[in-house]
Design a protein around this nucleic acid. Structure first.
Lengths: 301, 301
DNA sequence: CTGAAAGCGCTTACAG
DNA sequence: CTGAAAGCGCTTACAG
């Protein structure tokens, strides 16, 4: 049938309520036009923009997103099983995938792309350069004059948090600054508060700046400093975080931070995925995007 | 084949990398085990818990969620088209659906459930009782002694915001309190700030309390009061909002608010949807959940 | 260009 | 209980 004739008929049929069955098309063509997105719930809470940017960018090329929201790492196996069963065209994972499941995906020829997890070997990825962001914020804090630094880390398995803190620590060391206190958090506000209270309880009060693995903990720390210890920020203690979340730009919480270029990253992820769906054998390229320093009154300029 | 034998074989096959093709099953059984979720991006930003609660509750009954994230109302038609094409088992809409599209869904026998939109006629829904929540917060503010009230509304089409404010206004009127200032916001922090600055610019400064259509605007208003006008909250002005967002419980922002019982609502939505997928002809029941008052230092107890 | 057949990977009656 | 056939709604190669 001539293309325009076909289009005309489809349009007419559509008026009458007919829609071609995409599922049937999917089994016929072995192409579902759906990709899976594996995301920790925590990631979505702290970066709601990621889901939006990805789903919009995919939507532009006619691809839908099936969302797999994880509470815990141990759900990943089951999720991969689902993905394999749904014959999705590809998977974007903002979570670690066990080797066994990587093998399953590879065997099923499902292209995989890591988001903010550049470390995994042999798998394509798009990420923010978290190490460089750590260096950036450390330099900014050092420029304000602080030399005695307290760190609020994320938990040990958090790749992004670890990279950020590795960048921070190495830059501090290169400049002869000292880490005088440390605390392990979980990216939540409460743990930022807990860090400051913990140090206070242990008599540690000689830090000139706090660098937290993300903004939420930085804000918690700042709130504890101000509202619990009666300190001034940044005069007594400077505070810095990562992500440039909305609250870090409020009148009440101007936090120095490093922002991720989420839209560019999402665009890159969608482009890469689209290419990989067409051609399974592309090299495992890794695209790294620099973070952007966001000034804030929590660190003196 | 005997069930246990079948299970055994499937397990063995699975080891070798075989997974039954769910899409093929979907076309054969005309049941995809996927429901569509139509959500405004704004809703997800302000209530990330909704997406999580729904996707988890569905996951427990083996149903996956295909997410349709909207930036704008005018995308709904296209989204409904997609949903019809994917032969989804049902749709949960936290957005208004034009009558025409309601008809299309009905013609295709796709069960529909509104989330936080109880008003639509003839369609099942689960919602928080926003009107009652408005009454609740108004009563709380009145109890603190305030009688001259300023309101920060949402935009005119926002159902939830309108219901909240309707409850607020009627309860204020019943108690002889006056609305001395109004501002139309959009649920964002910035508009809360803008409201207070706008009133100040126009010389309006005799309000004793601000009630905003959500917490973000309430926090913005409070920040503007404190950081721009040098007022004290709640001594000079009380501030209240809705949703009980995380930031409303920070040390820096203890905001009186009314919380939605999201987990219960999600559970109810999933139950209702599951029943309606089995039986198309259930009555258009509407389930209403009461909000919960959250105290905060922004309104004196 | 057109139309009928075969095939995608499953399920579901139905005959044996 | 078992196995082969028909069917779900599409696409794709193939004969006319």
């Amino acid at each position: 049938m001539a293309p325009e004739k076909r289009a005309h008929i489809l349009r007419a049929a559509r008026e009458l309520g007919y829609r071609p069955n995409v599922m049937a098309r999917a089994v016929a063509t072995r192409r579902s036009n759906v990709v899976g997105l594996i995301l920790f719930n925590e990631t979505n809470r702290h970066h709601p923009g990621v889901l939006l940017a990805l789903s919009q960018a995919f939507s532009l090329i006619g691809v839908r997103v099936m969302l797999f929201l994880l509470e815990d790492v141990d759900e990943i196996g089951a999720v991969i099983d689902h993905i394999l069963s749904y014959q999705l065209d590809g998977v974007i994972a903002a979570a670690p995938i066990p080797q066994e499941d990587l093998d399953h995906l590879a065997a099923a020829q499902v292209p995989l792309l890591f988001y903010n997890r550049p470390g995994e070997d042999g798998v394509a990825s798009v990420s923010c350069d978290h190490y460089a962001s750590g260096v950036l914020i450390a330099r900014h804090v050092l420029a304000s004059g602080a030399r005695r630094i307290a760190l609020i880390r994320s938990y040990a398995e958090a790749f992004v948090g670890n990279e950020r803190m590795r960048g921070v620590e190495e830059e501090l060391a290169r400049n002869g600054a000292n880490v005088v206190a440390e605390f392990r958090g979980d990216f939540d506000y409460d743990r930022g508060v807990a860090a400051v209270l913990d140090w206070a309880a242990r008599g540690i009060d000689d830090y000139e700046a706090i660098i937290a693995a993300n903004d939420m903990m930085a804000i918690g720390a700042k709130d504890a400093l101000v509202h619990k210890l009666g300190k001034r920020v940044p005069q007594d203690v400077a505070v810095a975080g990562f992500d440039g979340v909305e609250a870090s730009r409020w009148l009440s919480h101007s936090i120095a931070s490093v922002d991720q270029p989420i839209e560019h990253m999402a665009k890159a992820a969608v482009d890469m995925m689209a290419l990989r769906i067409e051609n399974q054998h592309l090299p495992a390229e890794r695209r790294l995007f620099p973070g952007r320093l966001q000034h804030g009154s929590s660190v003196a300029d």
